[in-house]
Every structure is written in structure tokens, then in C-alpha cells.
Nucleic acid binder design. Sequence first.
DNA 1: TCATTACATGTTATAACATAACACACTAAC
DNA 2: GTTAGTGTGTTATGTTATAACATGTAATGA
Lengths: 167, 167
Amino acid sequence: MKKKKKNENSSKIFLGHDHGACFGDAITQIEDYFIQKKLQLTPLRRKVFEILIEDHKPLGAYEVLEKLGKAGFSSSPPIAYRVLDFLIEHGFVHKVQGLNAFIACSNPKHSHFPTFVICRKCEKVAEVSEEKSGLNLPNPEITNFKIEKTTIELTGICSTCENAEIR
Amino acid sequence: MKKKKKNENSSKIFLGHDHGACFGDAITQIEDYFIQKKLQLTPLRRKVFEILIEDHKPLGAYEVLEKLGKAGFSSSPPIAYRVLDFLIEHGFVHKVQGLNAFIACSNPKHSHFPTFVICRKCEKVAEVSEEKSGLNLPNPEITNFKIEKTTIELTGICSTCENAEIR
DNA sequence: TCATTACATGTTATAACATAACACACTAAC
DNA sequence: GTTAGTGTGTTATGTTATAACATGTAATGA
Ligand SMILES: [Zn+2]
Ligand SMILES: [Zn+2]
Ligand SMILES: [Zn+2]
Ligand SMILES: [Zn+2]
């Protein structure tokens, strides 16, 4: 096999994200999913998802809310929280606990326990899939525990920022 | 070698915690650490730690605050947050992000990236050490990222609660 | 046809969590 | 005895999240 993967050298997690494609794919994926599951991708839900996928970075609920307001929707908190919770339930959005923020999933097709890698300096956030995270759960010690949800966030400094560190 | 470990069979993470010993050890450990590092284990700091280690379960900052008040300390929010932050810095307390709560470390001697296992039903929380968590980081994909801090929380249902599930 | 149900959104009010900014006391160092 | 560092106290405010209730709309099916 040994087929050379595109971007093999630039597989650093903060690079290699073709967001143009990502954006389009994501919209298509959510549309398909909602049809298949007979859910309503209402204007509000679509807008919230678009807001999050637009720059593909974590946004606070109140930031989302503000953008909703500018787009003509109500901007009272429950509006944002409800839709965000809904999108989270269906795997299109994740909450980044360390930032109290919400981010569009990078690959909703994978059912996953994603890892988020967060640079404290440039504040970039990358979602790393289960298979690639190096995470290997469950182990014997937690075999008796049924994992339903994970929060895995690695905070630190990316190589770009480290090289630029002054101190 | 093959020396049989104590509690080998009861190594389920929610069991096998001798809290009597844990409590005493923890106090001794924090005292030693503070002396060694020339830090002040003031009455306030000691009390906050005691509050957290007492029942050894996660408490919200405002719960800690209330207990501080009852013990004769000030109960304005910054008091709790400052001391909690301080204890976190020195590894004696962790924040459980998923619960907005604070918990005494189960083993401050280990420098660690702990995993928290949280039963959503009985709300028990267990801290699993790095070596035992099955976590295996960094992996090739995140080699260029310098991890400074981790948040790893596994939420689900423990075997005890699962067996008792009605639905 | 007209209740019943389910669902999506809207609104008000409030709860829960966290920090900024400043004040004061104590100690150690110079 | 002034200065700097540290620890605690206080007031006010900022940020994040939810409870409770109201309205609108569409599908179901007596
Ligand atoms: Zn994802
Ligand atoms: Zn960076
Ligand atoms: Zn710990
Ligand atoms: Zn349980």
C-alpha cells in the first residue's frame, strides 16, 4: 500500500485544513443528516451552524447570539443555548470546556471521542479524531465504566508559537 | 516479581479508596510540600483544602465559600477562587470542568495529567492517574505541540448504576 | 372540525460561575 | 522606616447558563 498521503509532511494538526472544502462539505453533511434523520434544519439552526463553521473557531454562546441578532434572529440567550445543545446532540458541534466556547465539528461523519488541542498563545484549536489522538480507552482499570461522552482537551503551545517565544 | 497487589480484584476505580488514610496522607503531604517550597499554608488555605478533602468529592466554588463562611472566614467569591487557583497551581486541587467544580487531588505526589471518570447517575468522580488511564500522548500527529495542561474527563455510567438502571 | 400532540422559537427573569479593582495588614529586606 | 512582597478582605461587576412560561405552526386522528 504505502500510498503517499496528501500533505503527509504538513500533517501538523494546525495546518492542512482546507476550509473551503470543509465549509461546503459540512453544509452538505448536515443537510443530508437532517433529511435522513427526519430532523428540521430550520433557518435558525442552519444559521447557527453557519456562524460556527464560517471561521471554524470556537465562539462563546453570546458571540453566536450577537451574530444571530445581526442576522435578524432573536438574541436572547436561550435561543443560542438551545440550538447549540441540539447541534451538539447530533454531533455537529462540540463544546470546548476550557474556553466555554462552541466549535463546529471537523468531521461529523466519524462517531468519535474527539481530542481538542488548544494553543494558549495563538488560541488556535484543532480537533483530532479518536483514531489519531493516541488515546486508547477503555483500559482494564475502567472496563466497568461505560463511557458515554468524553472531554479531552490538551492545552499548551504550538510549535509555531514556541519558536516565536520571547522569554 | 508477580507480587500480588492489595485490592487487585477490587481495582474498580470507584472502589478501593481508603479515605481515612487518604485524608491523613493528604494533609501531611500538603504540609510537607509547603514547607519544602517555602509556601505559607495559612489557615485559609488549609481550611479550603480540608473542605475539599473532607468528603473527597467535587464542590463548586460557592459551596466551598459557604463552608468557609461557616468556619468564620470571609465568604466573598474572590476568597475562594484565589485559594482554589493557588492550590490548583501546586497540584493539590483539580478543576472538574464538566461540573464547574473543584476536587482534591487523589495523589499529589504524582506529577500527572489525570483522567476524571464521572458517573452521571451517582455523580461519583474518580481520578485515574496518567499511567493507569490508558492515555498515550503525545502521538506522532501532535508531536509538535507542547502539552502544558490536560483536561480529560470521561462521563458515563458506572457498573453499579448500570446494573440498577430501570429502563 | 376541532382537540391533542409534538416541536420550534420567542420572552422575561434569574441563577450560577468568575474576575476586576482597590484596600489593608503583616513581614522581610534594605 | 521605607519599600516590596504576600495574603486576605470588600465592593462591584462581568460572564455564562437555565427556568419558566408564551406563542406559533404543523401533523394526528377522534
Ligand atoms: Zn467532532
Ligand atoms: Zn500557537
Ligand atoms: Zn491529581
Ligand atoms: Zn454510578
